[in-house]
Amino acid sequence: MPPELTHDERLTAFEARIARGEKIEPGDWMPDDYRRQLIRMISQHAHSEIVGMLPEGAWIEHAPSLRRKLILIAKVQDEAGHGQYLYHAAESLGAERQDLIDALLAGKAKYSNIFNYPTLNWADVGMIGWLVDGAAIKNQTMLTGASYGPYSRAMVRICAEETFHYKQGKEMITLYAQGTPHQRRMAQDALDRWWWPSLMMFGPPDADSTNSTTLMRWGIKLKSNDALRQEFIDEIVPELHAAGLCIPDPDLRYDENSGHWLTGPIDWDEFWRVIKGNGPMNRERLRARRTAHDDGLWVREAMAAYASRSSVIGKRSTVSGQR
């Protein structure tokens, strides 16, 4: 039996492990706040995957070629798969998936704000792949280095798949931006609506980000919101220009001195309005999730009844076998 350590000794050892770059694994000691913060982040991430199925999923039935239809079903399915995987990662910290989902359905859990915007034309699907997945990859690439083992490992595989989505979205929009007038209008219209929300995906400016300091100390988060946002802008702006698209920001300019693309001011009032539940699609997204949940109740009851009956039958046959 190892000698009892004080909380402070454990914390020191824990932080030393993180400093050495070791991964924290499910059975390991961790501060309650580390566990809480991780459950919050991972479940928000999982919810984002689940709610994120809706805006793109709505276009599966309208996809205009066999190939695009296949790619879109596969993409939305990837998101569901990531959701399941991330709920498992949250469970490894002692959370219950049902509790997490209940919190989502009750409107108490957050998910990525971006999915509270509507998908209004077919090109939105490609633009989401390019911008939204592109922005998500920035964040998730960082998280592959996160200190919690299950989360970081999940991110490695999720990133590989997201990169594929990003490339597919970019391919589609690049094609449309050079396509018929109708397609060019669709692509530009999609960019006009998704540009600013995608920049907001990195979260509020560092000065207003409440959780960042602790998250960075414990290696859950490795870069600040603003730093990631700037990386994204510097990479995506030349790509969009190369495709022949016009970024809807009159103040956008390349700063020779810093080597950065500088955007005009982001409308943070809109960000806070949407995050508080007043975005264009907040209510609709939750309504869709609740309907699926409510309509599925009898199915889940049947599953449970069948599973318990099967196990009873199994036990009976064991008993009779012993006679």
Binding site: A80, A288, D295
Partner: peptide, 16 residues
């Protein structure tokens, strides 16, 4: 059409 609307998450994945 079930993608995103299935009774359990596992079935969103399976049916897709």
């Amino acid at each position: 059409e079930w993608t995103g609307h299935a009774p359990i998450l596992e079935e969103d994945i399976a049916l897709a």
